[in-house]
Computed example of a mutant assay.
Amino acid sequence: MSGLFPMIDLKLRPNRRVIPAGTELWRVHLSRYAPDEFNPRLADIHFDGGRFDGTVLDQYHCLYLAESALTALAESVLRSRPFDLPAGDRTIPYRTVWQRSLSCLRTRSDLTLVSLVSGADLAGVCQDTAFLEDESNYARARRWSSEIRAQASDAMGLIWESRRNRSEHALVLYHDRCAGPAGAPLEVLPERGVADLGSAAGRERANELLAPLRARIAEPERPG
């Protein structure tokens, strides 16, 4: 970490949640990344980047996961997707899965995360639901993530309720908190995933998973 945080006078009281060793988690990622590879890209301080990405002020790499294959897909492809008239289903553009994979991983050891699941959890870090719901101010969320990291030095990441598949959870891991004597924090289970979501077989599997959320991946556009 950069040492620039904390930058606030508020004393946070983060609640912890432990993900036990042996837990299966899921991830959608660009296929050029290994399933257990942390994203090395740092977010812009003010603009581009994910909600809890590291920045030049707090230089950690991140890895986003979910507790089920459906939630991993939903978090990746259902952002700002309306229900189409008149059928009421959601059509997901093919480009959202092109050159992407769905991977299953298993935790090698317990993961201690700061919980942002309940109202009490959010109050513990002096936030409310806007911290997770506001799509217009990721820069603020990234800054506050660094404040949480600074005041919860044992935390290896964050966990919260998925906005796109309520009652299930999404999480992010910090690379600089996950290295330890046990080695890499995650074991890849290649037989459980989908190596190419853009293939015909991959889209079919994705559509099976997304069916309960009334969503499906569109066919790729034909040239001409």
Results as ranks from 00 to 15, higher is better:
residue 165 N to V: 06
residue 186 L to E: 02
residue 129 T to M: 12
residue 163 R to V: 04
residue 208 E to H: 08
residue 101 S to C: 11
residue 136 S to C: 11
residue 67 E to R: 04
residue 223 P to Y: 09
residue 47 F to V: 12
residue 168 E to S: 11
residue 53 D to F: 08
residue 87 A to F: 15
residue 124 G to D: 02
residue 58 D to N: 14
residue 9 D to I: 12
residue 42 L to Q: 08
residue 209 L to Y: 04
residue 50 G to W: 07
residue 81 R to W: 01
residue 19 I to R: 04
residue 10 L to G: 06
residue 70 L to T: 11
residue 209 L to P: 00
residue 160 W to D: 03
residue 33 Y to G: 07
residue 89 D to Q: 14
residue 24 E to M: 13
residue 196 D to W: 11
residue 75 E to T: 05
residue 25 L to T: 02
residue 36 D to S: 12
residue 105 L to K: 01
residue 36 D to R: 10
residue 142 R to C: 08
residue 185 P to A: 09
residue 156 M to C: 03
residue 144 W to L: 08
residue 20 P to I: 02
residue 35 P to R: 02
residue 119 G to V: 05
residue 39 N to P: 01
residue 90 R to Y: 06
residue 212 P to V: 03
residue 219 E to Y: 13
residue 137 N to S: 14
residue 38 F to S: 00
residue 150 A to T: 05
residue 120 A to H: 08
residue 155 A to R: 05
residue 135 E to M: 12
residue 213 L to K: 00
residue 222 R to Y: 14
residue 91 T to E: 14
residue 143 R to M: 09
residue 48 D to W: 15
residue 224 G to L: 08
residue 117 V to Y: 06
residue 127 Q to W: 05
residue 216 R to M: 07
residue 215 A to E: 00
residue 223 P to E: 10
residue 44 D to E: 13
residue 48 D to H: 10
